[in-house]
């Protein structure tokens, strides 16, 4: 049984992050893999041994501050899961919570989990729009598409690599270069839409890592992704049009 653990989905699901959970679970089911979605509720403790994939979504500023303390308390369990090869996908606010701290527009500082060496400071205006990012994963380069909407400007530590290189959009800092972060199987990104429906290659990568952690075969049968391909084609078209 593969266990997908969304963290505090009641509070961290502002940009339809449930879509990522659903996509991951469905792509497992369609391949005959037994899968369970076991959300971590506020006040509960994460059992690092029982999780095979961890998803952290984004929240409104107020909700994010509410969950920060709780999440920090789970950091040792998260660290142990990560060391054990469990993939973590963190989007928007979740990405920010991976880092050391988030400073909002009024200068108030919310500490993060410090799982990844990065920090975020709110900028004066929000960075909003369709994005296309080139992501190198193994030997393949993929186009990651979606939508960004964040006030935070995220700076990565010297040893942390970006997840990808922005083709269309504004990226971590609004400078149009780096997007997201990746440290082995920990992925952070500002791209929602939500992320996985239009990027099935990424969903399958996370799924393969999760299967490996559970001791299952990582050779995933191909699925019929024609609709996804059509959605990506439109998304790139729309993103390029917005750029002009």
């Amino acid at each position: 049984m593969l266990r997908i653990v969304p963290i505090y989905p009641e509070l961290l699901s502002i940009y339809a992050d449930r879509g990522n959970v659903r996509v991951l679970a469905q792509r497992a089911r369609w391949r005959g893999i037994d899968v369970e979605v076991a959300p971590l509720a506020l006040g509960e403790d994460l059992d690092p041994v029982r999780a095979d994939a961890i998803l952290i979504g984004g929240g409104q500023d107020r909700d994010q501050a509410l969950v920060a303390d709780a999440l920090i308390a789970q950091a040792p369990a998260l660290r142990s899961a990560i060391a054990d090869g469990v993939p973590v996908l963190a989007v928007c606010g979740g990405f920010q919570l991976l880092g050391h701290r988030y400073v909002d527009q009024s200068g108030t500082e919310t500490p993060g989990t410090g799982l990844v060496d990065l920090e975020t400071i709110a900028g004066r205006h929000r960075l909003i729009g369709n994005v296309v990012v080139d992501v190198q994963l193994g030997s393949a380069t993929h186009q990651m598409v979606g939508f960004e909407n964040h006030a935070g400007r995220t700076t990565l530590g010297a040893d942390v690599k970006a997840l990808g290189r922005v083709r269309v959009g504004q990226g971590n800092n609004g400078d149009g270069f780096a997007e997201g972060c990746r440290v082995d199987r920990v992925i952070g990104t500002y791209v929602h839409g939500p992320l996985l429906p239009k990027n099935p290659w990424l969903a399958d990568q996370v799924l393969a890592w999760a299967c490996e952690h559970r001791g299952l075969s990582t050779a995933l049968e191909p699925l019929d992704d024609r609709l996804e391909t059509a959605a990506v084609t439109t998304a790139i078209e729309v993103a390029r049009a917005q750029q002009r």
């Binding site: 879509g19 659903r22 429906p197 024609r226 609709l227 059509a230 959605a231 084609t233 439109t234 729309v238």
Partner: peptide, 23 residues
Amino acid sequence: GRRAADLAVRLRYADVPLDRIDR
């Protein structure tokens, strides 16, 4: 609509069979 394919993907993950989804 312009984002017809996004809707179609959404329905697919709601377990609507692919041959039931026209675009």
